[in-house]
Design a protein around this nucleic acid. Structure first.
Length: 890
RNA sequence: GCCCGGAUGGUGGAAUGGUAGACACGCAGGACUUAAAAUCCUGUGGCCAUUAAGGCUGUGCGGGUUCAAGUCCCGCUCCGGGUACCA
């Protein structure tokens, strides 16, 4: 019988749908639960990409396997459907983004269903559905009404915030400002990156290092706009600590740590000569204060203008202006060469009371630390560069730990920068009484910090790179903020009963050039009055795409609950997510934001776990072959001809080089899953995606490779569907051994997400079965079961042919019988001096001495024993024999 | 620059420190066929020998540890990802 995958796949997809086979169990009593989650996709107009099914197939295999193992499985799918493309399309064509979105979701759903993925479609969610974003808005309100208690290190309701008397006395506005300054979500002026092309603000994270917008590639610029911000840095410490216990890839954990960027050091106050002001700096190296020979203040620092002396004013003003303009034009040019000007002002170094000049330079950032630094050129490479350029003094205060005497001499003379450890020199002063000479870095930092604190001129301080999260976008197609700005300056959020605040219908979707959202044109929707007649205006910004994806895993637990965000009992049962699979591109932002929201919800008692995702796994990207000519120019894949393993441009006839590159329209190397399904079937696509290589690595798609797994499925079908091959008899011990080896391998490989080798184990068994020519019905049933998570359509069909009437999806996973795996003999590889010379089969029960005797008396050993004198013989039972010889000549 | 990965046949990739190249693709030869496709069988790292048995060599490069290294250690090269004046 031929393997008619089209009929088989259609038949079983229909069966699963009609029988609601993959509906999540309702009862919450099964102690074994498994929440298996994919990163839900943005449904783009281009449809599914072969990258999507990679992760989806992996989670599907785990889900199906866990069901067979008796677990209650939650395995849902949904759409992260807010986003720019649908809105851009609306601007161009006038089509409402909801229509575009719906069409795209329909395409994605159809494509995903055609892959036979076992999602519970009753739990499908869509972030653009008001029934869903009602709760996104609800979470925003929770953030708005929460403050962070530094002592308890947790978020608490604002009702528990104690207002100091001094604030209460100062009146309502002071109280309001005080409260607002504590909210996790706040509204304020922010200097933001603006993309003039997309007419949208971008988070720092969305701006690439070359100053371009990651979405469109155009240059961004700085603007000052009123924005919603979230105080994620308050959770920096918890977010950092939480990473340690997560079962996530080390690389991703490290990226999150780097992003949070914790650094310990001290803040130190420098008196500004001739003023009453002090200039506070943050440094990780308070121990190097004796080497501080000047200071640098950021151009945007509030003191910069006032501390500048009259005679330097013009130059400094020009510099500040140039710096702000320059950053608009090109951030990266700034990074290449440091510039700065002297302010004319001197500061007093607190350790030795020496006067040091204050410079302004844009390599010091206002957004980090205090916006001012002390420069220690001898022990900081950036300061050293600056010293060279402007001929500033370099004073070495540390005898470096180097063996090279010339280098040591250069460092001590201040001609080379040294940032590592050593012993302090020139680091004492009798006037101030501090002395750290002779200490090493660690002791020096400790002693200096204590001294600074005792003199009240500094204190230990921890800083984070993590900044407030810019949480608003000037767009239409996003969640509206449930916020009203009142005439008198009050900002209020809607009552829960008034949610969701739905998006109004608009005629035009184009945002204003000045950074106004299209919602500013929604007159009826926009303006509101309260009971006392006070006028208000709704927030016209919308939330960024991150908002909906920050918490969707929680809604899957109880997706149609319209009374609560979810039933807490269900949340307790299903959380945390047991395994979360998706692309590494979300390593930092989505996962960090999501963890942040989750921790806030945890603090408020809304969720029961501190972390949302227990185990995370990143699938590798799937690339494709592309072609380039000698000059490195790319040649579209559709005009390539292959002859004798070489590739030619069919239009010019010139030879081209095959390379591996990202799939892209311009290279014409995009693989469409629909085409693969049509030609080979969904089971083949699934199997190939898994067989391609380990899940986490980047690997190239090769159409030819699909044939390999297609052949396997075809052979499987032809063998097991042929009644002549399925015979009642005492099963062949070799078959039993092979079968149980396969069960064991497939099981451990699924548990460890090594699907490629699981598939090869099944191939090995099939090859054995075909060679033997027959198996028992039991063997056929077991093999069908272990195949079913991978190729579910084919497995259901074979299961049915074996006389079963119910789905295979909930059949118990076969048990490995170790009895069948026992070996009686082992073929020992015998090496002489590590080189394999021959093999000898010996019983596994044989003792070492017996093994040695058999090996040494073997006729084949003689030849090698003659080449030297035996000095040792290593026998590792059931592994290897190695004879060590000393060469006669040597 | 810094941080994380990675480098194994023509290709994708296997290999608890213990037989390198499992399993596939491709290729070559054969069977079936009027022919092709499909399917089935055999071979397939390189070099030497080929009448056979066999031998040498081989996991990016250079060292080291070990009876034994793709795997562990030290020093490089190249490729991919992240990050970027974070004081």
């Amino acid at each position: 019988m031929e393997y008619n995958f089209r009929n088989i796949e259609k038949k079983w997809q229909q069966y699963w749908e009609e029988n609601k086979t993959f509906r999540t169990p309702d009862d919450l009593t099964n102690p074994n639960k498994c929440y298996i989650l994919d990163m839900f996709p943005y449904p783009s107009g281009a449809g599914l990409h072969v990258g999507h099914p990679e992760g989806y197939t992996a989670t599907d295999i785990i889900s199906r396997y866990k069901r067979m193992k008796g677990f209650s499985v939650l395995h849902p799918m949904g759409w992260d459907a807010f986003g720019l493309p649908a809105e851009q399309y609306a601007i161009q064509t006038g089509t409402h983004p909801s229509i575009t979105t719906k069409n795209n979701c329909d395409t994605f759903r159809r494509q995903i269903k055609e892959l036979g993925l076992s999602y519970d479609w009753e739990r499908e969610i869509n972030t653009t559905d008001p029934k869903y974003y009602k709760w996104t808005q609800w979470i925003f309100i929770q953030l708005f009404n929460t403050w962070f208690d530094e002592k308890l290190r947790k978020g608490r309701p604002l009702s528990e915030l104690i207002i100091p008397d001094s604030i209460s006395k100062a009146g309502n506005k002071a109280v309001r400002d005080y409260v607002n300054s504590h909210r996790l979500a706040y509204y304020d002026n922010a200097t933001v990156w603006w993309c003039p092309d997309c007419r949208i603000v971008c988070a720092n994270e969305e701006v690439l290092f070359d100053g371009s917008h990651e979405k469109c590639g155009n240059r961004v610029e700085k603007r000052n706009l009123k924005q919603w911000m979230l105080r994620i840095p308050l959770y920096a410490e918890r977010l950092l600590k939480g990473i340690d216990d997560l079962d996530w890839p080390e690389g991703i954990k490290e990226m999150q740590r780097n992003w949070i960027g914790r650094s310990t050091g001290a803040e130190v106050d420098f008196k500004l000569e001739g003023t009453n002001e002090t200039l506070r700096v943050f440094t990780t190296r308070p121990d190097t204060l004796f080497g501080a020979t000047w200071m640098v203040i950021a151009p945007e620092h509030p003191l910069t203008t006032s501390l500048t002396t009259e005679d330097r004013k013009t130059e400094v003003d020009n510099y500040i202006k140039a710096a702000s303009l320059k950053s608009d034009l090109d951030r990266t040019d700034l990074a290449k060469e440091k510039t700065g000007v002297f302010t004319g002002r001197f500061a007093v170094n607190p350790v030795n009371l020496k006067k040091i000049p204050v410079w302004v330079a844009d390599y010091v950032l206002m957004g980090y630390g205090t916006g001012a630094i002390m420069a220690v050129p001898a022990h900081d490479t950036r300061d050293f560069e600056f010293a060279l350029k402007y001929d500033l003094p370099v004073e070495c205060i540390m005898d470096p730990e180097v063996t090279d005497n010339e280098q040591r001499s250069r460092i001590i003379k201040g001609r080379e920068c040294w940032t590592e450890d050593g012993r302090y020199i020139n680091s004492s002063d009798t006037k101030t009484g501090i002395d750290i000479n002779g200490l090493n870095k660690e002791a020096g930092i400790a002693k200096m910090t204590v001294w600074l604190e005792s003199k009240n001129i500094g204190k230990a301080k921890v800083n984070y790179k993590l900044r407030d999260w810019l949480f608003s976008r000037q767009r239409y197609w996003g969640e509206p903020f449930p916020v009203i700005h009142w005439d008198d300056g009050e900002i209020s959020v809607l009552d829960e009963k008034d949610l969701p605040l739905e998006l109004p219908e608009l005629e035009k979707y184009l945002p204003g050039e000045s950074g106004e959202s299209p919602l500013a044109n929604a007159g009826d929707w926009l303006n509101v009055n309260d009971k006392s007649g006070r006028k208000g205006r709704r927030e016209t910004n919308t939330m960024p795409q991150w908002a909906g994806s920050c918490w969707y895993y929680l809604r899957f637990i109880d997706p149609s609950n319209d009374k609560q965000i979810f039933d807490p009992e269900k949340e307790k049962y299903w959380m945390p997510v047991d395994i979360y699979i998706g692309g590494a591109e979300h390593a930092v932002l989505h996962l960090l934001y999501s963890r942040f929201w989750h921790k806030v919800l945890f603090d408020l008692g809304i969720v029961s776990t501190d972390e949302p995702y227990r185990k995370l796994f990143n699938q590798g990207m799937i690339l494709a072959y592309a072609y380039e000519n000698e000059t490195g120019a790319k040649v579209a894949a559709d005009i390539i001809e292959e002859r004798n393993g070489k590739f030619y441009n069919s239009e010019t006839g010139t030879e081209v080089k095959q390379i591996v590159a990202k799939m892209s329209k311009s290279l014409k190397n995009v693989v469409n899953p629909d085409d693969v399904v049509l030609k080979y079937g969904a089971d083949s696509l699934r199997l190939y995606e898994m067989f391609l290589g380990p899940l986490d690595i980047t690997k190239p798609w090769d159409d030819k490779g699909v044939k390999g797994v297609f052949n396997f499925l075809g052979r499987t079908f032809r063998f097991f569907s042929n009644g002549e091959n399925i015979v009642n008899y005492d099963e062949d011990p070799e078959i039993l051994k092979g079968l149980h080896q396969a069960i064991k391998k497939v099981e451990t490989d699924i548990e460890n997400l090594r699907f490629n080798t699981a598939i090869s184990a099944m191939m090995i068994f099939l090859n054995l079965a075909i060679r033997k020519g027959k198996v028992t019905p039991d063997t056929a049933a077991i093999f069908t079961k272990i195949l079913s998570p991978f190729a579910p359509h084919l497995a259901e069909e074979l299961w049915n042919m074996l006389g079963n009437t119910k789905t295979i999806a909930y059949e118990p996973w076969p048990e490995v019988n170790e009895e069948f795996l026992k070996e009686e003999a082992f073929e020992y590889p015998v090496s002489f001096n590590g080189k394999l010379r021959f093999k000898i089969e010996l019983p596994v029960s044989m003792t070492k001495d017996e093994i040695i005797e058999h090996v040494l008396t073997d006729a084949r050993a003689k030849k090698w024993l003659e080449t030297g004198t035996m000095t040792n013989i290593i026998v590792v039972p059931n592994r290897i024999v190695n004879v060590v010889l000393k060469n006669k000549c040597g």
